[in-house]
């Protein structure tokens, strides 16, 4: 049994598993927000997690990243059990998230914010003698991230002065600065005007394949355009997981999710 569990974690359809949960449970008092969730995200995957409101999608992200402590179960990152590691330790190992609602540094300039994140990844966070500006490589790297996200022209602006859609890009920029190996995007287009969400997804689509992406998204069009594999979460439990074409035809999924979306 030990052997089978080991080999299962190593490969799904011949691919390496980047992120995996085993029997993940989260209870808030009597309410079960995650019930025995076993999910596997392959290395380099473009994997989406969908489900109706209240299905426990964000709770799952919180459990994966260590924002919440699970009531039971394990989180495995690249074969390592990270269930009891603190959030920042998981980030150091390459498990990085964005937030559904912006969590930014409102009074920093855009460049300062991203430089802060770059400094943390480079292990400069304890350096207290030399000024930030003397760490030229960190500054340059932050500049490159801003250029990639088309934020260079607002690099000197305070974050709070930007429109929400552009703030959303900083949210992604902060995650990229941590050099994710597995990136959890929690509804990256939430609150972004329709015209800009396409551009935002093009940016995400351009990320290199070394970055495994788990996308949590409400917008079905975006999910079916982006994802190569989809997991459906309902009432805290995993309903099914498959390629988009199969998910689209699945009657149960239509009933609990697509039906609801079409009806509402």
């Amino acid at each position: 049994m030990f052997f089978s569990a080991l080999s299962a974690s190593k490969a799904v359809f011949g691919m390496t598993v980047a992120l995996e949960t085993r029997g993940l449970v989260k209870k808030f008092g009597g309410f079960v927000a995650a019930s025995d969730v076993a999910i596997r995200v392959a290395e380099g995957a473009r994997h989406a997690l969908i489900g109706p409101n209240g299905a426990g999608k964000t709770t799952l992200v919180d459990l994966l990243t260590g924002f919440l402590e699970p009531s039971a179960g394990e989180v495995i990152l690249k074969g390592e059990n990270v269930t009891h590691l603190a959030q920042h330790q998981r980030v150091r190992r390459g498990l990085v998230r964005t937030f559904q609602i912006n969590r930014l540094f409102a009074d920093m300039t855009v460049l300062e914010s991203v430089t802060l994140a770059v400094c943390e990844r480079r292990g400069l966070g304890w350096r207290w003698w030399r000024p930030v500006g003397a760490f030229t490589e960190a500054l340059d790297e932050a500049g490159e991230i801003l250029a990639m996200l088309h934020l260079s022209d607002v690099a000197h602006e305070r974050t709070r002065n930007l429109a929400y859609g552009r703030q959303r890009l900083i949210e992604i920029g902060l995650a990229l600065a941590a050099r994710p190996r597995v990136l959890l995007l929690d509804e990256p287009a939430a609150g972004v005007p329709a015209g800009q969400s396409r551009a935002l997804f093009e940016t995400i689509a351009r990320l290199p394949r070394e970055v495994t992406i788990l996308l949590i998204e409400h917008d079905m069009d975006l999910v079916f355009r982006f994802a190569e594999r989809i997991s459906v979460l309902v009432g805290g439990a995993l309903l099914t997981e498959d390629v988009p074409e199969v998910i689209a035809r699945d009657a149960r999924v239509r009933e609990v999710y697509l039906g609801e979306a079409a009806g509402g």
Binding site: T109, A147, H156
Partner: peptide
């Protein structure tokens, strides 16, 4: 080219 647009911000930080 985008990085040079961020140059004033970098200079301010420095």
């Amino acid at each position: 080219a985008g990085i040079s647009a961020a140059a004033p911000a970098a200079r301010a930080l420095r």
